[in-house]
Structure formats: C-alpha cells, structure tokens
Design a protein around this nucleic acid. Structure first.
Lengths: 317, 317
DNA sequence: CCTTGCTTGATAAACGCTTTCATGACTGAA
DNA sequence: TTCAGTCATGAAAGCGTTTATCAAGCAAGG
C-alpha cells in the first residue's frame, strides 16, 4: 500500500482494486488521516480560498454580500477568507492586501462600497484574479457586480417628487466614488424636474449620525422629503424627526436605501430602495471563476427596486 | 543570488550583506515576485488561517463575534476563513467541517450559539486545535469563551420583577442547549421570587417571528412584562404590541438581549442585556493560540450587563 | 505454451519554499 | 605570513502531496 495508491483512492484519478481501496480506507479511518492541504495545494497548484476584502462585516449590506459570496463559493468547494480594511489610507490598504495574499488564494473579491474598498482594489497586484462588488464602475478594469446606485437614487427621488414634494433633501453616506452615485442620481432627478437642489447633509452611515442629520433637518423647518444614503441612517433620521415632534410621513417623508431586515417593522415601516447584495456577491464569485463566459465580463448591473411602505406620502398641502 | 538567499532576505532568518539584499529586493520589485503561500506553509509547517464555523453571519451577535475574532487574528498575522453551517443535522455539520479542514488551518473557532454550532463542534476531530464562543459550557471539553446567558436572563427577570411586575413572559430563541440558559435563568428567577411561570413562547430569532409572538402575547391580555431572547425579536414584539394598541412601556414592558445597534434609537428605546460579542471573539482567539496560559483554559465567563432604557417600567397600578 | 495487451502497484520526479550544512572569503591575531 | 575564527553564500535535503513512468501480473489469443 504505497503513498500514490492512497492518493488515487482519495482523488479517484486512477482505478484501484476494490480490495486495496478497502484496505486504504480502513487505514485512513484508524489513523484519523487528513491530507495536508498545503502540500496538496503545492502539488496541484489549485487554490481553494477566495479572500474578501471589506471595511466592515457587521453592517447589513456588507454582511449580505459576504453571505452571497460564501454560498456561491461553498457551492463550488471554495472557502472564503475575510480581511478587514481598517484605515482609508493607501498604507493600510497595502498591509491588508499583503495579509490576504499571504494565503494560497484562488482569487480576491473586493467589496468596493467605500473608499477603503477602492483603495484595496488599487493596491491589488494585477496578477491576481479579482472581482468586485461596487457601486461605481470606474478605476481598475476588473469584472464588477454593480448595483446601480445612480439609477436607484434617481428613481427614489422621482418617486418623492411624484408624490408632490417640491424638492427632496439628501443625507449622504461615504462612498467609493466622490461624488457618490446616489448623490449624482438624486441631483440629476432634481435638476431634470427643475426642482431646487438643497445642500447635502453628510453622515457616516450609522444610525447615530442619522440622528444628528435628522435633528439638523428638522430644525430647518422647510423639509418635507428626505432621501437617505441607507436604511440605518434613515432610521436615525426618522427617530430625530419624531423626537422633534414631526410626524413621518404626515409632516415629512423619508426614503432609505438597501431594505434592511428591520425596515419592514420600523414605525412607520420604511419605504426604501431594495438592493440584492447577496445576489451581487454570488455574481462576483461567478465573475472570479470566469463562469460567466457568455456575459460581457466587464460588469453586470443590478438596479435597486423601490419598496413602497409607510414612511413616504404626499406632503401636507 | 540563490534561492536560499532570497528566503533569508524575506524572513530575516540569517544575515545577508547589504549589497545582496538590495539586489534581491530590486529583483523582487521588478518581477513582482510573491512567495508561494502553499509552499511556505508546507516547508514551515506553520498555518495562518483560523476557520470560523458559524450558522449565520448577518445577525448582530454573530457578526460582532466574527469581527472580534478577525481583529484579534489580524493582530497576530492570521487570516480568518468563514464556513457557514447550513443544516442542523450531523451530516451537514460533517460536510462543513470537511470543507473547513481542507485548508491549511492553524485552528478552528466555533460560534456555538445554536444547534448548528454544537453539531459542528461535535463533528470536529479531536486533533485539530479548537475554541468556541458559547452560551453553555457543556459537551466537548475545549476552551470556551462563555457568555453567561443564565445569569443574564436571571438578572433581567429580577429587574422586571423588581419593577413590580407580577410575572415575566419569555419569548425564547433557538439555542445550542435545550433548554437554553436564558430560559433557565428566567425560570430560576421567577421560581426564586415565587412568581408564576408562564408558558414560553417560541420564536426563530427573527424580527418577524417576534411580531407573531408579540401578537399572540398581546391578545392574551394578561401580559405586563416580556423578556425576549434577543433584541431583534424584542423589536418585533414591541411592534406587535403597538399594532395591537398597547403602549410600551406603559401597558407592557419589554426587555431584550444583546444590545443591538438600533436598540438605542428604537421607539421606545430598548432596555436590554448587553453582551460584548466582539470581546468574546477576541478571547476565543487567545484561547486558540494558547496565549491565556495564566487563566484556567477551560472557560472564561462574561456576564451580560443590564442597559436601562425606556422599554421597561413599573406596571400600571 | 508463448506472446500481446491491459490492469494495477510501486518508484521517482516535481511543486516552491525553508533550513541545515559545507564551503570559501575574509578578518585579525600570532 | 599563516592559521584560527567569522561570516556570507550556495548546495542539498526535506516538507506531503500529485502525476508520470515503469514494471509486474494476469487473461486471452494464436
């Protein structure tokens, strides 16, 4: 019973007599033998890890995308590794990329939702297979699963304008591009409608910063509709309005982005632009594996879909 | 300029003349050379991946623990890989474990928050270094970072009883043990206080199931205080109460578990038992690396802390 | 009964790195 | 000038697999 025989039993790469096979299998059982993954990777040259570079894993969109990636990867026998992007400077991007590339990688998927993601993408050596889930298709030419922020924000804004609002305010979140697609879409819709374009309010995409943004907007007094960069911010904005004695949607309408699991049970339930992050994650894996050969590999879009709930309504006359 | 020289420059394992070093470095630059991770792992026997086995990555507690693990791992130059646990049967646990062990692993950390986690832990071969983040310290004898569910639930229940409630209802979530520590702590507190022990209401730890549980409890009419298995469920329960015309906390008090980021801005803000999942994750990494040599390695506890907010109050007289 | 063709097992090389060991160049002391 | 001692460097072995090559055994055909 030689080493190659064992290998053949395990991989089925060549026929082995039933007798030997049984022998080998029993020995494996008894010894609790596990093939050495490193040696196997070295010999075959096959890598089975996809590294995901992302700035956050707890936020809804990120976590969903990771989940999609994991599912798609697992389906083809790959494992996903996580590397968090800490700072938004080039140096920390380089460090993170080095850490990730220290493994035997089949490829890399970057969650390019923010500056950290863009930086990481830029720091990636050309030689390693990569794909991205992004909101904007600029920069390095790698396959991207794109969510069309721009169109989403435009649709959301148009929806609010269509409801009869004179204009729509925007609470922005940090994005991979400057200005963000969401901002662009929002502005475009306003301009197309001949509506005034209010100054944008910045947030850091946390509920808490939404609270601040909402408090600020509430005190302005002239706000009747707000488009938020994501649902978490929208939650904060709504809360702030309510704290200031404004009713949503009677006094002011709020629309979010992403369709967070809690959007549906918020009070009032949140009208939002749903994005299928998990699907985008799955697509990125397909890109990486080159399994979407038929499709133009540059990019595929996914346009957010309006989910109408109770947080947006026509303005009080 | 030989192969070993390059190795020495890269690892600093032996002195290299400044001249040669410069030469090597330049060549590396020009060729874009990256050491082959698989070969390195094979030669050194060192593994740099920690695999996290978990049933969910999007839920708050899980995501936070993973974040803590990632941070601690990164601090010592390790990468974390994710393997999702799908089914709650032994077979899928085995499949997941096999997938994870197919990599060159330094060790495994299991998020033993539920049955899937327990199953995975059971399926793990004895030979591989492992640690767990758990709510209950039973089963296989491996180092565990424990959150003391039992004490947490007891404290929460006592708090509600102390407020003057005659008894406390409980909306349970699936747990790694049956019955869960939370259930046990809740019951213990009730019995110690001589309060009646109502029937437990089951949920699947989603807001939606909280909604159902809440609707059921609201219609019972005799409920004045509810302890929920986690915050997401609590959100659903509160929403259901409000939908049924009950005011929180005036008509009924609700306490959650975990301190979800949105707990603070919920309406009303949610009184809850805070758990530091990230810290537990970090501890699990320390266990795994055997870096907590001083501490009895069997387990360390972390007791949830009551965060008083607005969703719990004395009952209407 | 010998040869041919096919199946099956073993032997050997290769993967790309680290590490040990030996060599040769150089230093400083005798 | 020579010899022991230091130090940088290259040669070679080894890590645990896979895969190609080779040899042996066996059945069937002539």
């Amino acid at each position: 019973m030689s080493v190659p025989t064992v290998s053949r039993v395990l991989s089925g790469s060549a026929p082995v007599s039933a007798d030997k096979r049984r022998q080998v299998l029993r020995a494996i059982q008894e010894l609790g033998y596990r093939p050495n993954a490193a040696a196997r990777a070295l010999a075959t040259g096959k890598r089975s890890i996809i590294s995901v570079l992302t700035s956050d894993t707890t936020r809804y969109g990120y976590a969903s995308a990771i989940r999609g990636i994991e599912e798609a990867a697992r389906a083809v026998g790959l494992v996903v590794a996580l590397t968090l992007l800490d700072g938004d400077d080039e140096e920390s991007a380089r460090v993170a990329v080095d850490l990730a590339l220290g493994q035997p990688l089949a490829g890399v998927i970057v969650l390019e939702f923010d500056i950290q993601g863009s930086r990481a993408l830029a720091a990636l050596p050309e030689t390693i297979p990569a794909a991205a889930v992004s909101s904007a298709g600029r920069g390095r030419s790698i396959p991207r699963a794109l969510f069309d922020d721009h169109a989403g924000a435009r649709d959301a804004t148009n929806y609010l304008l269509g409801l009869g609002h004179r204009t729509v305010h925007h609470v922005g979140i940090p994005a991979s591009g400057r200005p963000s697609g969401r901002l662009l879409g929002w502005r475009e819709a306003l301009e197309a409608a001949g509506a005034p374009v209010p100054e944008i309010v910045e947030s850091d995409e946390t509920p808490r910063s939404g609270l601040q943004a909402g408090a600020y907007l509430a005190r302005r007094g002239d706000v009747t509709a707000v488009l938020c960069g994501n649902d978490e911010v929208a939650f904060g904005v709504i809360k702030a309005f309510q704290d200031e004695g404004l009713r949503v949607p009677e006094d002011v309408s709020v629309v979010g982005f992403d369709d967070h699991p809690l959007a549906e049970i918020w009070t009032p339930s949140l009208t939002t632009m749903r994005q299928d992050f998990a699907e985008l994650g799955r697509m990125a894996v397909d890109f990486l594996l080159g399994r979407l050969a038929g499709v133009p590999v540059e990019a595929t879009h996914s346009t957010p879909r309006l989910v109408m709930r109770k947080s947006a309504a026509p303005p009080a006359s």
